[in-house]
C-alpha cells in the first residue's frame, strides 16, 4: 500500500497575528507547526501502513522551513518526504493543488490523505482539487477509515450526523478531528528521521513554470479585526445577576 500525505506547515494556533510594513501577514518570528488536521492524516497513514505492508510519503509545497513539518512526520514514522519549493511567488489553492497533483502524478499511490482544512487560511479545498486533477474520488471530513481489498469505507461527518461512503482505490481522503489521536514522535523516531530521504524539488523539477500555477484568487488587502470591547460585568449575587442578565438580553441587547 503506497500512501501519500499532503501536509502544510502553519502558524502555531497560539500565534499572534500582525501585519508587516507591506500590509501583509507578518510571518517573521512566528513559531510554525504542522497543520493539526494534517497530523491526523499522517497518523492515519501510519496506522494503515502498520496494519500491513506499506510506505508513507509526506509531501508539501512550501519554503525550506517547511522541512521542519516534514521532519516531524518522518519522526512520527513516515518513510520519505518530498518538498516542492515554488520560490517567492503568490500561491492560491489552485496553484498549490496544481503543484501537488503534478508531483504526485509521477508517483505510485493507492491512498492520498490530507487534513480537511488548514488552520491558517482554512480554505478546505486543496486535497479535493488534487483529487479532481488526478481524476480519483475524494471523501472529505473523514472520522473513520477502513481499507480492505482495494476499497475504502470512510465515515464522514455531515451536518446532523454522519455518512458511510465506499470508494474504490486509489482515492483521496481528508481527515477531521476524531479520526485518530496522533502519536508524538518518539526519541528513536527523531533520531531516525534525520537519515530518511528528503527530496527537495523546484517547480522546474516537477515540470511546471510560474505561469501554469498563477493564482486565480488575488488578495487585495489584509487587516486585523477590531478588538471587541469588554462589556459590563453584572454585579450581585447569582440570583440577582442572572435575573438582570435575562432582562438585559431582552431589553437592551434585544437578542432574545
Amino acid at each position: 500500500m503506497k500512501i501519500l500525505v499532503c501536509l502544510k506547515q502553519t502558524f502555531d494556533t497560539e500565534a499572534k497575528i500582525t501585519l508587516d510594513s507591506n500590509g501583509k501577514i507578518e510571518s517573521k518570528g512566528v513559531s510554525m507547526i504542522m497543520n493539526p488536521y494534517d497530523e491526523f492524516a499522517v497518523e492515519e497513514a501510519l496506522r494503515i501502513k502498520e496494519k500491513g505492508e506499506g510506505e508513507v510519503t509526506v509531501i508539501s509545497v512550501g519554503g525550506q522551513q517547511t522541512q521542519d513539518a516534514l521532519r516531524q512526520a518522518l519522526a512520527m514514522g513516515a518513510d520519505k518526504a518530498v518538498l516542492v519549493d515554488p520560490g517567492e511567488i503568490e500561491l492560491d489553492e489552485f496553484s498549490t493543488a496544481t503543484v501537488l497533483a503534478k508531483t504526485i502524478g509521477g508517483m505510485e499511490y493507492d491512498i492520498i490523505l490530507g487534513g480537511f482544512r488548514a488552520i491558517d487560511d482554512g480554505s478546505a479545498q486543496v486535497v479535493g482539487r488534487v483529487a479532481e486533477l488526478l481524476n480519483i474520488p475524494v471523501v472529505n471530513v473523514v472520522t473513520k477509515l477502513e481499507i480492505e481489498g482495494g476499497k475504502a469505507l470512510a465515515t464522514r461527518e455531515v451536518e446532523g450526523g454522519s455518512e458511510v461512503i465506499e470508494v474504490a482505490l486509489p482515492a483521496a481522503f481528508t481527515a477531521q478531528k476524531g479520526l485518530n489521536e496522533p502519536r508524538y514522535p518518539s526519541m528513536k523516531g527523531i533520531m531516525k528521521a534525520k537519515k530518511k530521504p528528503m527530496d527537495k524539488k523546484t517547480l522546474a523539477d516537477v515540470g511546471l513554470d510560474e505561469n501554469q500555477i498563477a493564482a486565480k484568487v488575488k488578495a487585495l488587502s489584509f487587516s486585523l479585526p477590531e478588538a471587541r470591547q469588554a462589556g459590563k460585568v453584572i454585579p450581585g449575587e447569582a440570583a440577582e445577576a442572572a435575573k438582570e442578565l435575562a432582562r438585559l438580553l431582552r431589553e437592551e441587547a434585544k437578542v432574545i
Partner: peptide
C-alpha cells in the same frame, strides 16, 4: 483567516 485573527479581502 487565521481563525478570525486576520481578515483578507480578495
Amino acid at each position: 483567516i487565521y481563525a478570525g485573527k486576520a481578515i483578507v479581502k480578495a
